[in-house]
Design a protein around this nucleic acid. Structure first.
Length: 124
DNA sequence: CTTCTCACA
DNA sequence: TGTGAGTA
């Protein structure tokens, strides 16, 4: 299928689909008038890219992960190295959660302060 | 009408 | 990331 259909089915903008290709995450076949043609594999790959990106991974990291996520059992060996990068990403996420939790606590204390001191209510 | 590349108030 | 331009 061409990019228009893929965009509708996946909910990903054509702009982003082309961007993923630019980053080496997708490699659709070209046709007659240089139009991109996406196979079923490409559709699945795009879906996985979305999942991973929503999980907070950068396209660079996703790029290193995709080779192991193919349906082709031939590319399963390097997954040992992938597990390592996944663990690193997991750690990064936990670090961020820690920072955010602290920010959350600080804002809460300020909010509680406002309750006892109504005068500092934000205007507008 | 759809896709492509390139560029940016 | 969106969007518009000018093509093919």
């Amino acid at each position: 299928m061409k990019i228009g259909k893929l965009s509708k089915l996946s909910g990903v903008s054509q702009r982003m689909i082309r961007y993923y290709e630019e980053q080496g995450l997708l490699s659709p076949a070209r046709s007659d008038s240089n139009y991109r043609h996406y196979s079923n594999d490409d559709v699945c790959r795009l879906a996985r890219i979305r999942i991973l990106q929503e999980a907070g991974l950068t396209l660079k990291v996703i790029h290193s992960l995709l080779p192991c996520m193919t349906d082709d059992p031939l590319l399963f060996e390097p997954c040992a190295l992938v597990i390592d990068t996944l663990l690193e990403e997991k750690q990064k996420l936990e670090d961020r959660i820690k920072v955010l939790s602290e920010s959350h606590a600080i804002l809460n204390s300020h909010l509680n302060g406002l309750r006892s001191e109504p005068r500092v209510v934000v205007t507008d």
